[in-house]
């Protein structure tokens, strides 16, 4: 079964009160956490003038568009329009929501009607996200120890130790983004540097 969930980031990169840009295949999203930690993901387009909501800002339990300050609650509904302070915004004005879940340190996205739960990655430690300008084929060619399609797993040896590695693959138009996790006892700095080297090798495969 192929899952409709795609990892868009790691939880430690989205603290409370912050908004960031996310992506589900070709759909750009604004992913944000309210001050109290409520998570939401919407199409990255303000219903008013189409500005990217990921350029906006979080104040309390609301996300404001940076362009004209339209304020949206965590349910996606517009709560306030600064230019018309006494108007109660019509219910039709709402951001288009996706499903967004934080699980095992990973931020997962899926269309709103998704029924299954995101994959579990228990016992692993989130490391970092990094983007590559090459595709999956070049990545697989660069590291034979990894197997899988959307979720690559394998045991990689560096610095004399075998380290369990899990890479969540997020497609993007000009390459892929990897969200990396590792075995609980691995050294984060060493894994991060291994990822840099892996990216270098994978991108070089394309240049060859």
């Amino acid at each position: 079964m192929t899952t409709r969930w795609i990892a868009t980031g790691l939880c430690h990169d989205l603290p409370n009160g912050v908004v960031m840009a996310g992506r589900w295949h070709d759909t750009e999203l604004a992913v944000w956490r309210s001050a109290s930690g409520k998570l939401a993901a919407w199409k990255d387009r303000c219903p008013h003038r189409g500005m990217r909501l990921s350029h906006g800002f979080v104040r309390g339990e609301t996300l404001s568009c940076i362009y004209h300050g339209w304020v949206y609650g965590t349910d996606g509904g517009c709560k306030h329009i600064p230019a018309h302070p006494s108007l109660v915004p019509p219910k039709a004005i709402r951001a288009e929501a996706f499903s967004c879940v934080a699980l095992d340190g990973v931020l997962w996205l899926a269309p709103a009607d998704v029924s299954e739960a995101p994959p579990r990655l228990g016992g692993l430690r989130p490391v970092r996200s990094l983007s590559l300008t090459c595709g999956l084929a070049a990545l697989m060619a660069a590291e034979s120890a990894l197997a899988g399609k959307d979720i690559l797993r394998g045991s990689v040896t560096f610095g004399g130790h075998a380290v369990e590695i899990c890479l969540l693959v997020q497609p993007k138009p000009d390459g892929i983004t990897l969200h990396a996790l590792c075995g609980a006892s691995a050294d984060l700095v060493a894994v991060s540097r291994w990822l840099e080297a892996l990216r270098f090798k994978a991108e070089e495969k394309v240049a060859e």
Binding site: L10, V18, M20, F57, V58, R128
Partner: peptide, 30 residues
């Protein structure tokens, strides 16, 4: 978009006391 650590670092800088803005770098309204 592809640089999460830079994003958080930039937020830290823009949160500093006496931070000033310029056209293209706005202050944190929140």
């Amino acid at each position: 978009d592809d640089y999460p650590a830079i994003r958080l670092w930039s937020l830290s800088i823009r949160s500093l006391d006496r931070f000033v803005e310029m056209p293209g770098i706005h202050r944190l309204h929140e």
